[in-house]
């Protein structure tokens, strides 16, 4: 395997990075962990003239401040998410997702920014991030804007990023009061697996009534991008977190998803699995809140 030739640039500031992107636009690709980009260049899917490496930029920090929520720098590795005590405490679904990606080597190299920008339909980070109302900060020489991750990923490997923009960080608001989030992928083996389906849930209970106050469910690998189960979410809110409510919501999830048949699984099996995962994750989340 050899890569097509390119010029390598490693800017020392985000201003310099923005300048390079403004100058070279579609002719460049951003390099973070490289676990996708290097493979895609080897397969000649991308033939950039310039590869812009983020390694000299201070974009790997993970910070949490009550009232302002969680900020994850674009170049934070999946391993660093998996090990972050604050993410484990407040955003457990992200730990569950990070721990499932690739291998220890891939997790040490791959980044949150890459996982979001490469927008694979079976990427593990977007479903839990979407249930947590994550937004991505996109920066260019023109300025900065924030977009909900749900709107940022627009299709299979497609995003709303402009050619002169880079993803600077992912922002996740404070957890809802009396809430819990959970994520589970499902594959045919335990390690280095590409999911056939995954489900993330984030639910809050009303402490006075005990009923579901808020609910978000996102499903991965069953549509061109991680999709919300809006009808299933609506079926939960205002109802008691009983087995019956959860079973009904899980059934709605399996109807709402839009899976395809492929070499990993049939569409009907994926629908079945989505229902199973949704039921398990909702039960786990409710148990975590009430325990």
């Amino acid at each position: 395997m050899s890569l097509p030739p390119f010029e390598y640039l490693a800017p020392g500031s985000t201003a310099e990075l923005a300048g390079l992107l403004a100058a070279h636009r579609e002719r460049c690709r951003i390099l973070a962990g490289g676990t996708d980009l290097v493979n895609w260049m080897a397969e000649k899917i991308y033939r950039p003239d310039y590869v812009i490496d983020l390694r000299k930029l201070p974009l790997a920090a993970i910070t949490y401040e009550k009232g302002r929520g969680l900020t994850i720098g674009a170049a934070a590795t999946i391993e660093s998410l998996e090990r972050s005590p604050v993410i484990r405490e407040f955003y457990y679904a992200l730990v569950q997702a990070a721990g499932q990606i690739g291998s220890p080597q891939i997790r040490a190299m791959a980044t949150i920014g890459g996982n979001c920008c490469n927008a694979s339909p079976c990427a593990d980070m977007p479903p839990p991030l979407i249930t947590l109302e994550a937004r991505v900060a996109l920066t260019s020489a023109r300025g900065s804007r924030e977009v909900p991750l749900e709107e940022f990923i627009t299709g299979n490997r497609q995003t709303a990023i402009a050619p002169d923009e880079f993803l600077e960080c992912v922002r996740v608001p404070d957890p809802w009061p009396h809430s819990a989030c959970r994520y589970s992928p499902f594959g045919l083996r335990a390690a280095q697996e590409i999911d056939i389906a995954s489900v993330a849930v984030n639910v809050a209970l009303d402490p006075a009534t005990g009923l579901f106050a808020k609910a978000r469910i996102a499903m991965g690998a069953v549509a061109p991008f991680a999709m919300r189960a809006l009808k299933a979410e609506a079926s939960l809110v205002g109802n008691a977190p009983s087995g019956e409510t959860i079973d009904q919501a899980a059934l709605v999830c399996s109807r709402e998803c839009r899976p395809i048949d492929d070499l990993r699984a049939s569409a009907s099996y994926r629908r079945h699995i989505v229902g199973v995962l949704a039921r398990r994750m909702l039960r786990d989340a409710v148990a975590a809140i009430t325990s």
Binding site: M1, Y8, G34, D53, S103, Q105, M109
Partner: peptide, 25 residues
Amino acid sequence: QGDCGTCTVLIDGRRALACLTLAIA
């Protein structure tokens, strides 16, 4: 392509796949 792990080296103490790493980086 980063699946088998036989090219594993440690870079700054962390595991890395030499087949997916640019030498210049």
